[in-house]
Nucleic acid binder design. Structure first.
Lengths: 127, 127
DNA sequence: TTAAAACATACTAAATTAGTATGCTTTAAG
DNA sequence: CTTAAAGCATACTAATTTAGTATGTTTTAA
């Protein structure tokens, strides 16, 4: 069970933007602050923009801003955007045996707890 | 955030052995029961043996048995063996910034909850 | 007009996953 | 005492994912 740097970088970028909120911050600044490759970060933050967590301003003096208040954004939202749905196993679509399969009990319980934990942590707590 | 089939297959193999407990069951039987490639399963179950969750008997009529009673084995143990330590990020060894890094709060809280959940589920509940 | 920013797409090396293939060793049963 | 059925070990492979890099385009404030 691992979490990729995508999730971590996405989260850290969002925390960096939360610190600047409601002002904007650009890739170069976040990259420098967090020690993350600027080009890679640029790609990752694109996902956050397409999923309406941040808005961008192009051109000179541009950058990114959070769309919502930090206290309205959870770590769960960010991580699901960066990594896809949490614990996608045994959702009944992929596995027909889901109902009688013993392990599905574990995955379902786990997914519930992970979501509960991650969606309860809001960005304002991480500043 | 995903879980590999290694964890799932390992868990299902252990549940299959728990159902037979204290009798033994061989690879062919588990493979057939669970619909998992016999050869792959053989490799995976080797990990469980090396980590003292199951013991094997070689030769004709051989197979595997749980070493402990199903109620003494948690899904957490199994999953950690199959996939490595749960949420290995931000343990202070890899990342020097761990203390001040905002995201480490999230990973640590999450790791705690995941472990709590998985170590509380014992094999006897899954039969 | 231009420089600084975001945006888009294609490429790549390394690691991991989910196996398969081949053969060796052990041992109960005949 | 031979043999077939089991586990054990190691090497290989195709596909996918990760963590980027490279190259260039578009937008826009100064």
């Amino acid at each position: 069970m691992h979490f990729s740097t995508k999730a971590e970088y996405g989260l850290r970028a969002m925390v960096a933007l939360a610190r600047a909120y409601p002002k904007q911050k650009n890739i170069a600044e976040i990259s420098e602050e967090e020690g993350i490759s600027a080009k890679y970060l640029e790609k990752l933050i694109g996902k956050l923009r397409k999923n309406n967590l941040v808005k961008s301003q192009k051109g000179k003096g541009g950058g990114y801003t959070l769309i919502k208040n930090p206290r309205q954004i959870s770590s769960g939202e960010i991580i699901e955007i960066m990594e896809g749905p949490i614990v996608s196993k045994c959702d009944g679509k992929k596995c027909a045996k889901a109902k009688k399969c013993a392990s599905s009990f574990v995955w379902n319980k786990l997914a519930f707890q992970i979501k509960k934990t991650l969606f309860a942590i809001k960005l304002n707590e991480l500043i």
